[in-house]
């Protein structure tokens, strides 16, 4: 008969490894559950922290409603509503797709807006009320955009989507912004960065080169430099 004591010891090691794997799994599951249950609380704390520390210039919290939203209704509802809001996207997108290459390579100045760039309006007092959920924010901005076709709204959407890592959407909204007002540098930069994130390096650099030629923008040069040095 072989060494049963040794076998028992090996079994104990095996058992404890198996248990650790379970503990880790349970802990991860618990953390995810806690996060999901407390998502709005965590968000509000983060927002409070940012406000308390005067970091609002870093993060762009937009508009209107200051009340806390019911988290369940909000998550499900806003997702559903977001799908419902089409804001004539398809028509707009179709036109943009058709002309987008010509547009962004020519860097045309649209005549829909004056040359004056209203960059400060993004952080205006009026718009400084805090949202606790990006989905809610996106929904409201889209509604607003569908009414006014304001490039500030499309730019905000591009920023939010880019921040959230939804690069197809951020590219789309950056393009809409550029189409409405090609003088907005941020729109071009988000467009280029989104392209980069999606792996379309050649086109991103091409756009950036053309933009730098047209505008001699420091920010654009800085970005191009980062891209070339593989530091993006």
């Amino acid at each position: 008969m072989y060494d049963v004591d040794d076998l028992e010891n090996r079994w104990k090691i095996y058992r404890s490894r198996k248990r650790y794997a379970w503990y880790i799994f349970i802990i991860v599951e618990l953390l995810v559950a806690i996060y999901i249950v407390n998502i709005s609380k965590i968000n509000s704390r983060v927002v409070k922290y940012i406000k308390d520390n005067n970091l609002t210039h870093v993060f762009d919290f937009s508009k209107k409603d200051t009340t806390l939203m019911d988290k369940k209704d909000d998550t499900n509802g806003s997702l559903k509503k977001e799908k419902d809001i089409k804001i004539e996207d398809s028509d707009l997108q179709r036109d943009i797709d058709k002309e987008h290459k010509r547009k962004y390579l020519k860097i045309e100045l649209t005549d829909k807006y004056s040359k004056k760039v209203e960059t400060d309006s993004m952080d205006s007092d009026e718009d400084n009320s805090i949202y606790f959920d990006d989905l809610q924010m996106i929904r409201d901005i889209k509604i607003k955009f569908s009414k006014n076709k304001d490039y500030k709204d499309s730019l905000r959407l591009a920023e939010i989507y880019y921040r959230d890592g939804q690069y197809t959407e951020s590219e789309k909204w950056a393009l809409i912004t550029n189409n409405l007002n090609s003088d907005i540098e941020e729109g071009w930069l988000i467009f280029v960065k989104s392209k980069m994130k999606m792996g379309d390096y050649e086109e991103a650099q091409e756009v950036l080169d053309v933009y730098i030629k047209k505008t001699n923008s420091k920010e654009a040069k800085k970005l191009l430099d980062e891209i070339k040095r593989d530091k993006f």
Binding site: L7, E8, R10, W11, I13, Y14, R15, R17
Partner: peptide, 16 residues
């Protein structure tokens, strides 16, 4: 189950 697992370890079906 313990003895089953021990047999598995013994026969190297289970790697410890």
């Amino acid at each position: 189950t313990k003895i089953l697992e021990m047999a598995g370890i013994k026969l190297r079906y289970i790697d410890v």
